[in-house]
Design a protein around this nucleic acid. Structure first.
Lengths: 143, 143
DNA sequence: TTTACTGCAAAATTTTTGCATTAAC
DNA sequence: GTTAATGCAAAAATTTTGCAGTAAA
């Protein structure tokens, strides 16, 4: 899977006539080997430890590029930080967010997706993407 | 309904020992008589026409207060602008957003809500709120 | 009077851009 | 050699705060 994304990104770069650089490789590795919901800042800080000369702007621009290439997706949990998550081909998942400890659980539910399509259809919409986030308290935090 | 919200806000103010001011009344009227998804800036600009001396910070702080009082809710569509929408007591709705013209349609679907609860339960979560947004192209824009 | 609110301007955040230099092709 | 990417610093855009003056209770 990591392999696939690297390959996908390499192809995207090539097809667009862009350049493959050391920084992009480093950032991609860091992104792929991380938590699935990193903010730009978190990734930047993580990188800075080993690669102190990589600039914030590069991380910023590279993440945008990941999103454009389809291997990442921008998400907003409304805490004022843009995050990027991994996108596996064809896969889609939603989020369960613990408002107490911040844990994020991913889930999928086909029935919900089907109902969403129905809702959209009834309003003459064709869905491109969707976002479903459930906020609540996880079991651990309730104890 | 407008009446109810005004009343609810008045009660909130009183109960908290806060003050009822001319500005808060003006902002509340503008908010209630507006589009259901105003950003702080949009509301500020709308107000400025008739009330050029109301400051941005006041609008900002007042909207926060509306949210705290329960008559409004903060939403983020990921376009870098915090919006506020009306909250009707006990009611909850989700959004269908046209990525082309920006139209926002609200909808409710009990079955989806029920399934969400099930998902949460299976992960030992108790849901407090949720957010469901469907992004796509509306009928008009497809023509 | 006392306490909270307003309006302004300034600070803090976060995102985005310009540009000279460097690295990939 | 060309063209695109980097890194820095600076600009934009948003959100948030401090504070002296003002208005509500």
């Amino acid at each position: 899977m990591k392999r696939t994304k690297k390959k996908a990104f390499r192809e995207f770069i090539a097809q667009k006539g862009l350049k493959s650089t050391r920084q992009r490789d480093i950032i991609l590795d860091a992104f792929l080997s991380s938590d699935r919901h990193m903010s730009i800042e978190e990734l930047y800080l993580k990188l800075r430890a080993k690669h102190p000369n990589i600039g914030y702007a590069t991380v910023y621009r590279t993440l945008k590029l990941f999103a454009e290439s389809g291997i990442a997706r921008e998400i907003q949990f409304g805490d004022g930080q843009t995050r990027y998550e991994h996108v596996a081909e064809g896969e889609h998942h939603d989020h369960l967010v613990c408002t107490h400890c911040g844990t994020i659980i991913e889930f999928e539910n086909e029935t919900i997706e089907k109902l969403q399509d129905e809702v959209a259809q009834s309003h003459d919409f064709i869905i491109e993407t969707h976002k479903l986030e459930l906020y609540g308290i996880c079991g651990k935090c309730r104890k």
